[in-house]
């Protein structure tokens, strides 16, 4: 039999699969392109499981293919094949081999389960963050620093970030694929803990991974990893007082219509996303990407994105709680301009 030839033919296919698996996906989004130790450990387990499973699949497919080619019925064949009841030897083999494979996979699985459930919240070097999910945005509170922000989780690179996750309404799930697997945010005061770190500077995409309503798919956020000094500057800048819009008409509208729910600096309400430094965030509402060189329909300049959002939030994120705010054109333009200039200068 030319069994080896068969395997040789299968080899390029396998190589292609490995290629597809190993080196793909955006570095800021893919679970296959881990950028932190937690995602790395999870990826290691995925690779181990994947290699075992590819082995299993190849063996079964090869057997299957061989059998259906070799034992297909020839035309007019009336013969009765030998009726075999079974074979204890074979049956023991295909019971024991899977058990061995499962032990190979099971031991590191259990190790990783316990590794990744370590509680780092008493680690003095760790940065504590309380994550609260809302329909359809993320609130990040740094209890040790006394600051709160929304949609963009700024972290010092390399440091362990400990997360306490909870929700203000329904179930959501906090997920930054390139840094760590997800954890659900449960209602009713039960908080879930996890940790991760990002050794490299950069912006990582985060997503909500539990169905939470119409805009579930649009509930994105960012994790921004910066150096220590920048992080300290960011934390300080977030607490600094913020000037109101210079145009009195815009300022009045902003204070009466926006600050009721949102906070800027030391002013405003705490219930909805904190807008301090919104001009230097990477996106508006998590999904309108701020860029001076827009390529896609969800991209635009910071000003354009803010304008688009404030004009009709429901158009961007159906079912969100902001609703349409009654603003004149002048107020709308002014507020969008003011917010787009509300930057925090912390990166060098």
């Amino acid at each position: 039999m030319n069994r080896w030839q068969f395997f040789k033919r299968l080899a390029p296919l396998l190589a292609l699969m490995v290629l597809v698996l190993s080196a793909c996906g955006r570095a800021d989004l893919s679970a296959l392109n881990p950028q932190g130790p937690v995602a790395q450990e999870q990826f290691g387990l995925m690779k181990l499981a994947f290699s075992i499973m590819v082995g299993v699949v190849v063996i079964v497919f090869a057997l299957c293919l061989f059998v259906i080619i070799r034992f297909r019925r020839r035309r007019g064949d009336k013969s009765i094949p030998k009726q075999v009841e079974g074979s204890h030897k074979l049956e023991i083999i295909w019971t024991v081999i899977p058990i061995i494979l499962l032990i190979i996979l099971g031991v590191p699985t259990v190790q990783t389960v316990f590794n990744l459930s370590k509680d780092h919240s008493n680690d003095p070097d760790a940065v504590k963050v309380i994550v609260t999910s809302h329909q359809y945005w993320w609130e990040f509170e740094y209890p040790e620093l006394g600051i709160k922000t929304a949609q963009e989780l700024v972290i010092p690179k390399g440091k362990t970030i400990t997360i306490e996750a909870k929700t203000a309404d329904v179930l959501h799930s906090f997920w930054v694929p390139s840094l760590a697997g997800k954890i659900d945010t449960n209602p009713g005061g039960s908080t879930n803990k996890m940790f991760f770190s990002a050794p490299k500077e950069g912006v990582y995409l985060g997503k909500c991974a539990e169905l939470c309503g119409p805009s579930h798919g649009l509930m994105d956020f960012k994790v921004k990893s910066v150096d220590d000094a920048s992080f300290d500057r960011w934390a300080a800048a977030l607490q600094a007082p913020v000037a109101m819009p210079s145009d009195p008409v815009v300022a009045a509208a902003f204070e009466s219509k926006c600050l009721v729910c949102h906070a800027v600096g030391d002013k405003g309400g705490p219930l909805y996303p904190n807008l301090t430094g919104i001009g230097s965030r990477d996106s508006v509402g998590g999904i309108l990407i701020n860029t001076d060189d827009p390529k896609y329909s969800n991209e635009g300049s910071t000003y354009d994105n803010l304008h688009r959002w404030i004009e009709n939030p429901d158009d961007i994120k159906p079912g969100n709680l902001m609703g349409q705010i009654d603003l004149t054109q002048q107020e709308l333009d002014g507020i969008a301009k003011y917010l787009s200039e509300l930057t925090l200068d912390y990166e060098q």
Binding site: L205, L218, N298
Partner: peptide, 16 residues
């Protein structure tokens, strides 16, 4: 594996 959650109504462009 590349980061697309299930049950999402739509996805952004440029994510691959």
């Amino acid at each position: 594996l590349l980061g697309m959650p299930r049950r999402i109504w739509t996805y952004l462009d440029g994510l691959g």
